[in-house]
Amino acid sequence: MLLTRTIPVLLLHGHGLNKTRQFDYWKYLGDPVNAVRIFNEKEVDELIVLDIDASREGFGPRIKEIVELAGECFMPMCYGGGITDLEQIKRLLSEGIEKVSLNTAVHTTPSLVEKAARDFGSQSIVVSIDVRRNADGRYSVFSNCGRKDRGIDPVAFAVQAKNLGAGEIMLYDIDRDGMKNGYNLELIKAVSDAVDIPVIACGGAGRLEHLSEAISAGAHAVAAGSLFVLIGRLDAVLISYPPQAELEKLYAGSGVFA
């Protein structure tokens, strides 16, 4: 059985699906419902949906649109964006979302992670850690969709998130987002070595080989946007996902089979 999860990431901007580069430079991809239907056909392991507008503009989850997506989604779905309280988490989970991803709220209300893990189980709570190099050249945690430097070391923050009750860490390298030059293996290893909960690597995948590199570096799962929604030098829009047999072969040397 294949244990490693390979997860497409869909970014909501406005009422459409978009892809960013370094959390900027929006490229419109189309209707998110159509993308979800295609991923259903391709039998993806899991899906992460992030509403970037909610974090940037400061509004809560757009429940109606998220419920529509969840209704079309035949695989486990994780949602993040604008979540600030327990009632929102309860509503999302009751509407068929399997996990919620918390980012900015972890900084403003860290007790939310503790309360959510207590009420709904750690397996439902993902803490998303956005990282980039700051002006001093050091890795730092950012929030508010990459706009606010929190001045926190990502390894220390991952440990804090785990201690608060997070069931998973999504480690997102902003500098590599959409660049297709591979994951930040150094950062993945440092965070994975520091916590005993699953780490989802995100940011930088441009080839399938990059996925296995991240797993070898210590990630428990790999997430990607561009790799699964764009193709070619000109970044034409194409929703794709490799067959499970190809993923099994890809991960064969990474020790991920039961």
Score class of each variant (00 low, 15 high):
Y251M: 06
D31N: 15
R233S: 11
K180S: 02
K27R: 11
L208I: 14
A117C: 06
G14Y: 15
I239G: 01
D136S: 13
R91P: 00
A245L: 04
M170L: 11
G165S: 07
L11Y: 08
E114H: 11
G58H: 07
E72L: 12
A161T: 06
L247E: 10
S111K: 05
I52R: 12
R207H: 10
R118P: 02
Q123D: 15
L2I: 05
Y28G: 14
G80M: 11
D130L: 09
R150P: 00
C145W: 15
H13D: 12
Q22L: 10
F74G: 05
A158D: 02
V141N: 14
L50R: 12
E168F: 07
M77A: 00
L250D: 13
P32M: 07
S128P: 02
A116V: 05
D119E: 15
L10G: 10
S94G: 11
S55P: 07
C145P: 07
N34S: 13
L230K: 12
V36Q: 01
C78E: 11
T104L: 01
N40Y: 00
P32H: 01
V33I: 09
I200G: 02
S140L: 10
H220I: 05
L171K: 03
L47I: 09
G80S: 09
G255Q: 05
E95F: 13
R118I: 01
C202P: 02
S128T: 09
C73G: 03
E246G: 12
I200S: 00
C145S: 15
R133V: 02
V191S: 02
G96C: 09
G146M: 14
L11N: 13
S212A: 12
S216M: 11
I215N: 04
H220C: 12
K64R: 15
A117L: 06
L164Y: 08
K162G: 05
C73E: 03
S128F: 09
A201P: 04
V49S: 00
I169L: 01
I89D: 00
I66T: 04
K64N: 08
V36H: 02
V106I: 10
G204Y: 00
D196G: 09
G30M: 12
R150C: 09
S192L: 04
